[in-house]
Design a binder for these strands. Sequence first.
DNA 1: TCCATAGTTCGCAACATACGAACTTATGAA
DNA 2: TTCATAAGTTCGTATGTTGCGAACTATGGA
Lengths: 125, 125
Amino acid sequence: MRPLTHPSIEHVTVEGILHALSDPVRATIYAQLACADAANSCSAFLQMEDRCIPKSTLSQHFRALREAGLIRSERRGVEMLNTTRCAEIEQRFPGLLPAILQAHAIQSGQSKPAKRKSAARSRVG
Amino acid sequence: MRPLTHPSIEHVTVEGILHALSDPVRATIYAQLACADAANSCSAFLQMEDRCIPKSTLSQHFRALREAGLIRSERRGVEMLNTTRCAEIEQRFPGLLPAILQAHAIQSGQSKPAKRKSAARSRVG
DNA sequence: TCCATAGTTCGCAACATACGAACTTATGAA
DNA sequence: TTCATAAGTTCGTATGTTGCGAACTATGGA
């Protein structure tokens, strides 16, 4: 079992970030991590939106996010705590992650402003 | 030969956009189209940054961009004119494309601010 | 018509992904 | 220590995706 590897922020690439987040499962995981207060374990995502993800697949997804530089994972006893590297990436690629997260929110309809009197494409931003 | 198909803006997805732009060749093509005044033909990209792209590969890349909703292509005589659908996408996913393009620019070192008085994190990437 | 140019499609090899099975690591109980 | 359990990882394989040369289609001109 090789140890967890995290790229330094210098080695994080735009292509890597986009590719990692172009998968709907990974995008969902990342979005949840991004808006979570505390770190999340992997197994918190075994069931997502009425869908079951196999453990092995989930492991690969976390590795993809980790190797893209999007999250940081550390072993904590028997489980793993995952946190986003938002701040670092924001510094390197300002505005990139917020824009992607917001786009995902818009697409999934989470960003409806609760009241839409004139349907004027009012989004979260 | 099937006719060119363009998804309606409603069917454009974030995942599709991210996946399309996660390829460095496509990202470069898109960036060039985005900052071009006039529409570009496909063959304008047969040679990019000291690298030759086969015609068939280029065709696939353009199809990928088209089907992701990123560009619009129309036959113009013997060639094809490609333009970005920036405005539509900006309306649907505000800020997404500018952020991605800027991130690519930062990564490729194109976005050095011309003056960097304190050498503040000004690395090529 | 024939020819040249600009792109597309086909076919195959190489690479990537999903997932069950088997494995490693950590923790607690006997 | 040994067994059991839980959380993740790695392996093997079936299935998808991608890159590219060869053959094809469509348009315009002589």
